[in-house]
Simulated scan of single mutants.
Amino acid sequence: MNDLLRTAELTVIGQVTTASNVTLVCEAPLEDGTELRVVYKPVRGERPLWDFPDGTLAGREVASYLVSDALGWGVIPETILREGPLGAGMVQRWIDVVEDGEGPDPVDLCPAGQVPDGFREVLRALDPAGHPVSLIHSEDPQLYRMAVLDVLINNADRKGGHALAGQDGRVYGVDHGICLHTEPKLRTVLWGWAGEAVDGELLTDITALVKALPGELGERLAEHLTDAEIDALEARGRALLENPVLPLPGSQRPIPWPAF
C-alpha cells in the first residue's frame, strides 16, 4: 500500500471543510480499474500553532504512523510524506467508515448515565441544547490500543471524531499532527481506562519499540522529528514499562475542545 501511496497520481476531488488545517480528499486510478482514495494534507495548508514548530504537522502524522506500525498495532492507516497537487504533504489511506445508524460510534454521546453495554463513561456534561449527556467510549480492544498509543506519542488532540469504525471491522485513529512534543500534552477523550494496568501483551510490544528506537526506526523518525522528540518518545515508553499503568488526567485541559 505504501508504494501505491508514493507513486499514485493524485487528483483532488473534495475537501474536509470541518478540519482545522487544509485537508483534501484525492483519488488516483489503479491498473485494475479501481480508484485509490486518500487524505492529503499539504504542508502549506497547516495553521501555525504557538507550541508546535511551523510546517511540522505532516511529518508528525508520518512519525505517529511509524510508531503504530513498529508496535504492530495497526491503529493508524498507512501514512507517508510526498509531493502532491499543492506541494509536499501527508498522504494517508482513506478509511470507509460504518454508516450512521448502525450502532454507537467508538466515541459517542448518550443520555446522562444511560451507558450502553460495552462502553465506559468519561464525563457528564450538557449538550448544545442543554440536555444532560454522558461522553462514552467503547471497550473495544482496538480502541484500548489507541489509548495506549496516545500516551506513547503524547497525543494532544484525540477527539471523538478521530476514532473511526471502519467497514472492515477495524477501529482506526486519524489526525496525529499535534503529537510527539517533548512536553506533556496528552489531551484525549479516551480516559475510560485511566489508572488501570496496561495489558502484558502491549508491554511486550512497547519493549520492542523502545529497543528499536536507537536503530533503523529512530533513523526513519529522525526524518520528521528532532533528537529531543525521539528521546522523549523513548522516555515515555520506558516510563510505561517501569510503571505499567495508564495515566490519570494531569492537566486543566485533559480533553480537547471541541470533543468531536
Score class of each variant (00 low, 15 high):
residue 125 A to K: 11
residue 130 G to A: 08
residue 119 F to K: 03
residue 110 C to S: 01
residue 134 S to F: 05
residue 142 Q to P: 03
residue 136 I to N: 00
residue 119 F to L: 08
residue 112 A to K: 04
residue 120 R to S: 09
residue 121 E to W: 03
residue 132 P to C: 07
residue 139 E to S: 12
residue 132 P to L: 11
residue 115 V to Q: 02
residue 111 P to V: 07
residue 119 F to M: 09
residue 123 L to W: 11
residue 120 R to E: 03
residue 114 Q to Y: 06
residue 131 H to A: 15
residue 115 V to Y: 01
residue 137 H to Y: 09
residue 107 V to F: 01
residue 122 V to D: 00
residue 134 S to H: 05
residue 131 H to D: 15
residue 144 Y to D: 05
residue 121 E to L: 08
residue 108 D to Q: 03
residue 139 E to N: 10
residue 137 H to L: 12
residue 146 M to T: 15
residue 113 G to I: 04
residue 139 E to H: 05
residue 140 D to H: 13
residue 146 M to D: 07
residue 124 R to V: 08
residue 127 D to K: 06
residue 145 R to H: 14
residue 146 M to E: 09
residue 122 V to P: 00
residue 117 D to C: 04
residue 146 M to F: 15
residue 134 S to E: 04
residue 147 A to Q: 01
residue 132 P to H: 11
residue 141 P to F: 07
residue 111 P to I: 08
residue 147 A to S: 11
residue 119 F to A: 04
residue 143 L to K: 03
residue 121 E to P: 04
residue 120 R to G: 09
residue 107 V to S: 02
residue 139 E to T: 15
residue 132 P to N: 10
residue 126 L to M: 14
residue 144 Y to H: 11
residue 122 V to H: 00
residue 116 P to K: 01
residue 125 A to S: 14
residue 130 G to R: 04
residue 128 P to A: 13
residue 146 M to H: 15
residue 131 H to I: 10
residue 123 L to E: 08
residue 147 A to F: 06
residue 143 L to R: 00
residue 123 L to Q: 06
residue 144 Y to W: 13
residue 136 I to C: 01
residue 113 G to F: 03
residue 132 P to D: 12
residue 124 R to S: 11
residue 136 I to V: 08
residue 139 E to R: 12
residue 145 R to N: 11
residue 143 L to M: 12
residue 140 D to E: 09
residue 141 P to S: 09
residue 121 E to I: 07
residue 120 R to T: 08
residue 111 P to S: 10
residue 127 D to P: 02
residue 126 L to Q: 15
residue 110 C to A: 10
residue 128 P to M: 10
residue 110 C to E: 01
residue 131 H to E: 15
residue 147 A to H: 01
residue 107 V to L: 04
residue 112 A to W: 03
residue 126 L to D: 13
residue 113 G to A: 06
residue 108 D to N: 09
residue 126 L to G: 09
residue 112 A to S: 10
residue 132 P to W: 10
residue 124 R to H: 14
residue 137 H to E: 12
residue 144 Y to E: 06
residue 146 M to V: 15
residue 119 F to N: 02
residue 143 L to C: 13
residue 112 A to M: 02
residue 121 E to C: 08
residue 144 Y to I: 11
residue 135 L to R: 00
residue 118 G to V: 07
residue 115 V to F: 01
residue 118 G to C: 07
residue 132 P to K: 10
residue 113 G to N: 02
residue 138 S to D: 08
residue 123 L to N: 06
residue 135 L to K: 00
residue 145 R to S: 14
residue 111 P to H: 08
residue 141 P to R: 02
residue 124 R to T: 14
residue 138 S to F: 03
residue 117 D to K: 10
residue 122 V to C: 04
residue 140 D to M: 12
residue 142 Q to K: 13
residue 146 M to W: 14
residue 127 D to A: 07
residue 125 A to V: 12
residue 122 V to M: 05
residue 109 L to M: 10
residue 146 M to Q: 13
residue 115 V to D: 01
residue 107 V to I: 09
residue 111 P to E: 09
residue 135 L to A: 02
residue 145 R to C: 14
residue 129 A to I: 10
residue 108 D to C: 08
residue 137 H to T: 12
residue 126 L to R: 15
residue 130 G to P: 02
residue 130 G to E: 05
residue 114 Q to N: 09
residue 112 A to G: 04
residue 142 Q to V: 14
